[in-house]
Structures are given as C-alpha cells and as structure tokens.
C-alpha cells in the first residue's frame, strides 16, 4: 500500500509542474494589467512603469518563471500584489473554512444521497423509487446560485430558522452545506441505486437471503460494500473539488473560503494569489484522488491483490 501511495505521489509531480506552467503562461496571455488594480484613478503614468519594474513584470517570462519556481520549492508562494500579504498565509487562513464547508457538504451528500439511493434500490419501480429519482434529477439540474438564494430567502428571511448568510457557528454551516452538497447527494442517489440494483441480483446476495439473514444485514454488510466502488469515486472527486473552493456558494453565503479568494484574485489580476491558489487546488485535488485510490483497495480486496501482483 505504501509503495502504491509513493508511486502515485511520484506520478503527480509532472501534473503539478504542468499546472504551474500552464497557469503561468495563461496569466501572461490573458489581457489586463495587475498594476491597474493597485493604483486607483489618479496615479501618475510614469509611476505605473516604476511599479511594474518593482514587481518584475517587465522581465522576460522565463526569468520570472524560474524565480517563481525557486520560491515555490521553498514553500514561498509570494505576496499578494494588492494586500502585500504572503499568499501561503492567506491560503492557510482560508483552508479550514473551506474544509469545514466541504466536509459538511459531503456529510450531507453521503447521508442523503447514499441513504435514499439504498431505499430506492430496495423498492425498484415503485412510486417511492420514482419520487426519489425525480428528486435526484431535480437536484442535479438545480443551479447552485438559484438554490442558495432560495434557501437563504426561505429559511433565513421568511422562516428565520437559520441565519441567511454569514460565517460562524454550526448554524451558519447548514444552508451553505446543503447548497453545495445537494448536487452530489442527487448524483450519489442515482449511482448508489444503480450500483445496488446490480449487486442485489448477484448470487451471493441470493445465498445470504436463503440463509435467512436479516435484510438489513444483507444490505449493509453484503451488498453495500460491493456497490461502493463507484460511489467512492464520486465522493472523492466531488470532495476534491469542494476543497478547492466553491466560488458560488461561498459568494452567496459570505463564506470566507478559498473559492472566493481565488475569484477576487482573478478579477484583480493578482498574479501571485492566482498562481498560489491554482497550485494549491491542484495539490488538494491530487491528494483527494490518491485517498480515493487507496480507499478502493481498503474496500475491495481484489483491487489490493491486483496491485500487489503488478508490484511483484
């Protein structure tokens, strides 16, 4: 397992390098000037040029890239052009907020999505099943922006059960977590149902039932672990994308996370923040996928065995 993990980490280095190069080049291709966001309306034109020199923006691209790479290797993502704060410090400030939101959204998605997916698979082609699948379809199709505003309006403004927006205790987490997690919940419901229906028709399930095992034991112990591989894939990729920031949800609910931080930096052409955030997101995404790959082996011994054979 450790060998496998190390191999995957090694393989991810070219990916990270690719991400850095592409981001770096893209930022110099897109129109716009970071100095414009820094100087306000009355700045002297001659000072703009001075500022560009101070920020090394007039140096050749390869030179800027080498300096940046040197700093990144030492864990220095640079300082924001706008706030002059270290990018890494800001990212680490915001990571717990994003992680909290991502974890809550994923908890909601797994609880609801896997739960109703199992129920649906146990009552296929009934009204309950169809109702759940309509809910799932609606969940996948509902735009996050609309859903977030409606939840805030209904539960926050009209019913006043929860704070409409903001950041703080557990009560602030509920609406953004539902907004962010609903699409995953809907998708998980569909995947779980399909996967469970496939497994529930297998011989070993029939055998378990013929041995008069309680139905919950058949479902949870024998069927669900075998149906879980595709579910884990969805959980892993969605969780990775949540961790790299949920721009819309964070904007609607005023959540100070990485997504909003990145968006703001893009709009202001704050190059060090954009580069730092993208790199950070890539690393998070790679780590999430690595965890998923390891979990495959934990859940399914056949995959574990296959990997050992390959290794030998």
């Amino acid at each position: 397992m450790i060998q496998f993990a190390l191999k995957r980490i090694w393989q991810s280095i070219p990916v990270i390098l690719g991400v850095i190069i592409i981001t770096f080049v893209l930022m110099y291709i897109i129109p716009g000037d970071p100095v414009i966001s820094m100087v306000g309306e009355r700045f002297d034109e001659s000072r703009i040029e001075e500022l560009r020199n101070e920020l090394h923006l007039n140096e050749p691209l390869w030179k800027q890239f080498l300096v940046y790479m040197g700093n990144v290797i030492q864990g220095d993502f640079g300082r924001s052009f706008i706030t002059d704060r270290p990018v890494m410090e800001d990212l680490l400030d915001k990571l717990p907020n994003t992680a909290m939101l991502a974890a809550a959204a994923m908890f909601f998605a797994v609880l609801i999505g896997v739960g109703i997916g199992i129920i649906s698979s146990l009552r296929p082609n009934t009204i309950l099943d169809r109702g759940i699948m309509i809910f799932a379809l609606a969940g996948i199709s509902t735009p996050v922006f609309w859903l977030g505003l409606m939840l805030a309006l209904f539960f926050g403004v009209y019913l006043q059960w929860l704070p409409p927006t903001g950041f703080g205790g557990l009560e602030y987490l509920i609406l953004p977590a539902i907004t962010l997690g609903l699409r995953s919940a809907a998708y998980l419901a569909r995947i779980t149902r399909a996967s469970m229906l496939d497994v529930l028709n297998k011989d070993y399930i029939r055998t378990a039932r013929s041995k008069r095992l309680p139905e919950w034991k058949v479902v949870l112990k024998h069927a669900l672990p075998n149906a879980f591989i595709p579910v884990i894939t969805v959980i892993g990729t969605d969780f990775g994308s949540y961790l790299s920031g949920a721009v819309l949800t964070e904007s609607i609910f005023g959540w100070p996370g990485i997504g909003r931080f990145a968006l703001d930096a893009i709009l202001k052409r704050d190059f060090p923040v954009i580069q730092g955030t993208v790199l950070f997101m890539a690393i998070v995404f790679i780590c999430a996928n690595l965890v998923v790959d390891i979990l495959y082996g934990v859940i399914d011994p056949r995959i574990r065995a296959e990997r050992s054979n390959h290794a030998n």
């Binding site: 505003l149 805030a152 309006l153 926050g156 403004v157 409409p164 927006t165 903001g166 904007s251 609607i252 609910f253 005023g254 100070p256 909003r260």
Partner: peptide
Amino acid sequence: RILSESLSRMGE
C-alpha cells in the same frame, strides 16, 4: 460583514 452578493445583503 463582507457579503459580495447584493441579494444576500438585502436578505440579511
């Protein structure tokens, strides 16, 4: 409070 969306501000 920092709320980027005007509709969120109105809701609050």
